[in-house]
Design a protein around this nucleic acid. Structure first.
Lengths: 154, 154
DNA sequence: CGCACCTTTTACGTTTACGTCAATCCTATA
DNA sequence: TATAGGATTGACGTAAACGTAAAAGGTGCG
């Protein structure tokens, strides 16, 4: 049994004890697959967001880790901090209904949604102000460029 | 001659040589007037964005400084970095037409406008994703909450 | 054998715009 | 004169999410 081989180039394919069809991926592949850096994966682990298995000191990621990573990336995409993501993930309990987890997620989501809407309002505001300033500047440029001695400009 | 006295409470009113009706304000007032902290004003000065006069070691702000501060705050509002603002301000030349300054400002503004629009798109995207996730979570909560033993949920 | 390549841990650096002391000084006022 | 209120400089702290370098170990291949 080997590591999952992406395409053809499975360099450095070490013999790893794999049980029950579990597919292990090392950090390099994991990083490529999800478009993150090695540093990021180690960082997430350091923050308690990921918990890959180990073969000696080598990290081995399973599809559980992949699922978690997907969640993390989704969380970040919608603007949650890693702390928020961790807080929500930490409530996951495979034996229960995860009602609490879901409620927390919903709660945080509502707040985040509000933040996002506020941000959008701010940005719209900024766009407005900026557009104004730009037309003012354009006007000033026109006055300085066109017909410096004549006052009739059209 | 005295410092400009805002309302009635002009505490700590020191004798300051004022010429030609110039109105000086010390840092505390300046901060209040523009809703920034003392630290902020000193920081801006440290970054070369402001250049208040001095009475000994005490900073004295004139309306020139106020105008500059207004520009800084507008710049920040529309998302420019302080470096950008400084770069634009540094081109100011009271003897010329400031064409170069205006062109630079316009150039930076166009780029910033693009960034803002991109940001807004990202935010809209995030809002969409988040809304989706939220309805999924709500659905999950419904399934876990309502009629745990009956499969008919209306 | 040696090189290229992957991986590890540790730890400091980056970015931006200030916040938060800390120690000190000056001044007006009761 | 004691006290309260501003003001000064200097310098470390903060937030977030990694980047980057260093020093080292393991592995397969030609």
């Amino acid at each position: 049994m080997k590591l999952v081989s992406p395409g053809e180039a499975a360099a450095n394919t070490n013999e790893i004890p794999v049980e029950a069809g579990e597919e292990f991926v090392r950090i390099g592949e994991m990083a490529k697959k999800y478009g993150v850096t090695l540093r990021t994966l180690r960082f997430y682990e350091d923050k308690g967001l990921l918990n890959p298995h180990r073969d000696g000191s080598t990290r081995l990621y399973t599809r559980r880790d992949k699922a978690r990573l997907k969640l993390i990336l989704l969380g970040r995409k919608v603007g949650f901090s890693l702390r928020d993501v961790k807080q929500m993930m930490d409530l996951y309990d495979p034996t229960g209904t995860n009602t609490r987890q879901l409620r927390l997620a919903l709660d945080k989501s509502e707040k985040q949604l509000a933040r996002l809407q506020k941000q959008r309002a701010l940005i719209d505001d900024a766009i407005g102000e900026l557009s104004n300033s730009m037309s003012v500047v354009r006007q000033m440029l026109v006055e300085r460029t066109a017909a410096p001695q004549a006052s009739a400009a059209g």
